[in-house]
Design a protein around this nucleic acid. Structure first.
Length: 830
RNA sequence: GCGAGAGUGGCGAAAUUGGUAGACGCACUGGACUUAGGAUCCAGCCCACUUACCUGGAUGGGGGUUCGAGUCCCCCCUCUCGCACCA
């Protein structure tokens, strides 16, 4: 093999050349075109942490292939990129390196943008946005105020996870085994005022519309459904003995209400102090409450904790049968769910069963399973399934499913209860005591209370003249020029809200903002209606709940504020797997990190793209393999050499190919080409399985080499070779765009590949001339036949039974049956 | 514990959805060309008995349905992810 300059695949020069051309010509810039079918492709935008990692490379490569493929298929493709630019790491870096979060963030964005360009991703960079830009977050502030006026945003005091070292609230995800994820400080609960989005107003819709998200992975939908957690049941009032108060309980099992033998309430239940007031139980209960609180803080594994409780000394009355039920407070009752009070039915709830056994509380069976009779004295566990109602007055002998309804109806009729639906979903707390975020546009006036910032005063810009002290406390809290304002209503001295938004607020609507070029309004209706919803969204599974749920919620808010028309943001969702190395997720601490820069330097972006697509289907984890990359590199080199060594032939004009006039080798290659076009198209279209698409192209290349190589049987028609090379370049172009553009140009094409159409296959030309039919005897493969497709069954049967190898296995046994599967096999049953 | 997904060569993975198990690639082995090769080309490559053919055996394990099972059904094992006292 020669080593002259023509055959050298100089990926550095090639990639630079095309990237500059795409940038200069704005090749991937788009605008609304009513005459073209739109396709909005979006990958989850990155946090500008410093440099891109292999996860980004994989995510964005997958997206770019789809974007480029859809363009070739004639779609008007929107493929934007931006920066999820607010967040804590910027603040930490600023403190550590004595810089400003803004300069740290913008430097990172700038560097990472260069990296993305080096990968050759086909973004419309004119639409780039950074969420830390006031031109972005000002609209979010406007939404917030609008929603405040619509009563979808409110402020309340709650318990939050607080890290004293970092001086901030932590999200639940940032608390690992009760410790802060960054500094391992014990996280403490703290009562704080915070702002909330009323996502619970949309619980029902968010749940119901999971049904319509047929383009989402079932796994993600299941997680969202569980997170929303709808339970249908009843709310029943149990009057408290010697009191005018009632204990309100929520249950999904009203059919078991006659079986309740005690009552359990959460240690934080507001009625608890009055229940123990004046009883001798007061001290014991207080002690228990205090202890439980401590244990909860430590977030001990539950099995170590066990189910515990104490009697309060008070009783309540079951409104159905007048039974007197002792009220306990127990550590497993959650104040946040339902009403914080639970009627305990030990016979039919495992937790209540364990509790009753432990504290020697009676057990009463009210549901009998089919054909059995449970004895409360001997049962070893609660019976939680449906059955027949017993010991329940007029409801006896009802099916438990019917009794549920009947018992609830009675409560409604008598006025001590009603049907009730409960959700697990909590309202979304968005206040963060941090600096590097979008300011919450609110003012607290000592006279008038909470006042939204007037719209004409927006944006509330995050001040940049700040200094961090060692404590890590947000400088906004002490920055007088920021917080000291006049009340917009009365003009009195007032205090500006110094908390900032959770960064998930920014990422909840960026996909809508990408559709709009204007900067003077939040969203341009025409543009947004043209582009939304996102046709294909791609990102990691780790956002299955948080980001994806918030984005769905925000879409509904934007719709209800009249900015957009659609109710769901993402029609199709692809959750790509992780990139792992040596069996573990890449991480600095494990020392198994691969830097994309090194790979691009060594192999070029096209090889990196190709391998990350080839090694595994997108939804699965990808095991990074240094040797495997070389295989992908080798493949590109081989194609490059073939093309550059045969430029003369490949540069000639196409003549019309007529399959009938071709010799055997030419026909073979021609057929393989059409089969490959069909397969690659199907693999991309059906499932984004680029790994099998690439292997199909490799097969075509192998065929090309074998029919044109030194041992080739006959001359292959140059037009067929040229056609095959064109097909290889077209099919590979979404995956290895620079490489293909270069060879496309070298082979005499005047228009670039970025303007080319996806090739069509000819079904006639793709048809096999000869197929292999397997002959089985009793289901075992015994022989193979080469026949024409569509051969008659009778003829095939004849050939099969007279086949020498098959005969050996038939012997003189009786043939009982012959099964023929068209174009596939013959099975002789003897 | 509950829910979801997965288990196929030395490795990453394919398998027209019930019809030739292991495409494609990596690694490995031999050969060619070479001053050299970690470049390139050719050949081999699931396991067992084999010079070879033939023939058995193989898709986590066990059963079943079927002419035929990696694929469908039942039981069990292992791994990954998610939720974790949700009344």
């Amino acid at each position: 093999m020669t080593n002259n300059a023509d055959t050298r695949y100089d990926f550095k020069a090639i990639e630079k050349k095309w990237q500059e051309k795409w940038l200069a010509e704005k090749t991937f810039k788009v605008s609304e075109d009513p005459y073209k079918k739109k396709y909005y492709l979006l990958e989850m935008f990155p946090y500008p942490s410093g440099r891109i990692h292999m996860g980004h490379v994989r995510n964005y490569t997958i997206g770019d292939v789809i974007a480029r493929y859809k363009r070739m298929k004639g779609f008007n493709v929107l493929h934007p990129m931006g920066w999820d630019a607010f967040g804590m790491p910027a603040e930490n870096a600023a403190i550590k390196h004595n810089t400003h979060p803004a300069s740290w963030t913008y430097e990172n964005m700038n560097y990472m943008k260069g990296q993305l360009r080096k990968m050759g991703f086909s973004y419309d960079w004119d639409r780039e946005l950074a969420t830390c830009d006031p031109e972005y977050y000002r609209w979010e502030q406007l939404f917030f105020i609008t929603l405040y006026k619509k009563n979808l945003v409110y402020r309340k005091m709650t318990t939050v996870n607080w890290c004293d070292q970092c001086r901030t609230v932590l999200a639940n995800e940032q608390v690992i085994d009760g410790l802060c994820w960054r500094c391992d400080t014990q996280v403490v609960p703290k009562e704080m005022n915070g702002w909330f989005f009323k996502i619970t107003d949309y619980s029902e819709e968010l749940l119901k519309e999971c049904e319509s998200l047929t383009g989402w992975p079932e796994k993600v939908l299941t997680m969202q459904r569980n997170w929303i957690g709808k339970s249908v049941g009843a709310e029943i009032d149990f009057p408290i003995e010697n009191s005018s108060e009632c204990l309100k309980i929520f249950t999904t099992r009203p059919d078991t209400i006659y079986g309740s033998t005690f009552m359990s309430i959460a240690p934080e239940h507001p009625l608890l102090p009055s229940l123990v007031q004046g009883t001798e139980r007061k001290e014991a209960v207080n002690k228990f409450v205090k202890q439980t609180k401590l244990e909860k803080q430590r977030q001990q594994p539950e099995d170590e904790q066990g189910k515990k409780g104490v009697f309060t000394g008070s009783y309540c009355i079951n409104p159905y049968n007048g039974n007197r039920l002792p009220i306990y407070t127990a550590n497993f009752i959650l104040m946040e769910y339902g009403t914080g009070a639970v009627m305990a039915v030990p016979a039919h709830d495992q937790r209540d069963f364990e509790f009753a056994k432990k504290y020697d509380i009676p057990i009463k069976v009210v549901i009998q399973p089919e054909g059995k009779s449970l004895d409360p004295a001997t049962i070893k566990q609660a019976y939680e399934d449906p059955g027949t109602v017993v010991n329940s007055d007029q409801f006896d002998n009802m099916a438990s499913t019917e009794a549920k309804i009947a018992i609830t109806e009675l409560a409604a009729l008598k006025g001590f209860g009603k049907k009730q639906t409960t959700f697990r979903l909590r309202d979304w707390g968005v206040s963060r005591q941090r600096y590097w975020g979008a300011p919450i546009p609110m003012i607290n006036c000592p006279e008038c209370g909470i006042q939204p910032v007037p719209e004409q005063d927006l944006p509330v810009t995050l001040p940049t003249d700040i200094r961090f002290d060692k404590s890590g406390k947000s400088p906004l809290h002490t920055l007088e020029s920021f917080y000291a304002v006049k009340c917009p209503k009365c003009g009195a001295d007032a205090r500006r809200e110094t908390d900032t938004f959770d960064t998930f607020v920014e990422s909840s609507w960026y996909f809508a903002r990408f559709t709009c070029a204007d900067f003077d309004k939040p969203l341009n209706k025409d543009a947004v209606d043209y582009w939304l919803p996102v046709d294909q969204y791609i990102g990691g599974i780790e956002h299955a709940i948080l980001h994806l749920l918030y984005a769905r919620f925000f879409t509904k808010l934007l719709r209800d504020m009249g900015y957009i028309t659609v109710g769901e943001p993402f029609t199709n969702l692809l959750t790509q797997g992780m990139v792992i190395k040596d069996g573990a997720k890449m991480s600095k601490s494990k020392g198994n990190v691969i830097d994309p820069n090194d790979l691009i330097e060594q192999y070029g972006a096209d090889t990196v793209r190709l391998f990350s697509l080839f090694a595994a289907p997108p939804e699965r984890d990808l095991e990074w393999n240094d040797k495997g990359v070389e295989g992908s590199s080798r493949f590109l080199w081989r194609v490059f050499r073939f093309v550059t060594n045969n430029l003369e032939m490949l540069g000639q004009d196409n003549k019309k190919i007529s399959a009938a006039d071709l010799n055997v080798s030419s026909r073979l290659l021609h057929r393989k080409m059409h089969q490959t076009i069909r397969k690659v198209g199907n693999d991309i279209e059906d499932s984004f399985h680029f790994n099998t698409a690439i292997s199909a192209v490799m097969e075509l290349v192998n065929t090309l080499f074998s029919v044109t190589g030194e041992n080739a049987k006959e001359e292959v028609d140059p037009a067929v070779i040229r056609g095959s090379v064109e097909a290889v370049l077209l099919l590979l172009s979404p995956m290895a765009p620079h490489f293909c553009e270069q060879l496309w140009e070298l082979t005499g094409h005047l228009k670039p590949l970025s303007d080319a159409e996806w090739p069509e296959f000819d079904p006639e030309a793709a048809k096999d001339e000869e197929i292999t039919i397997v002959i089985q005897v009793n289901g075992k493969v015994r022989s193979r036949l080469q026949v024409e497709p569509g051969i008659a069954d009778d003829q095939l049967k004849e050939m099969a039974v007279s086949d020498e190898k098959a005969k050996k296995f038939i012997n003189d046994k009786e043939i009982r049956k012959i099964i023929i599967v068209k174009n596939r096999l013959v099975n002789i049953v003897v």
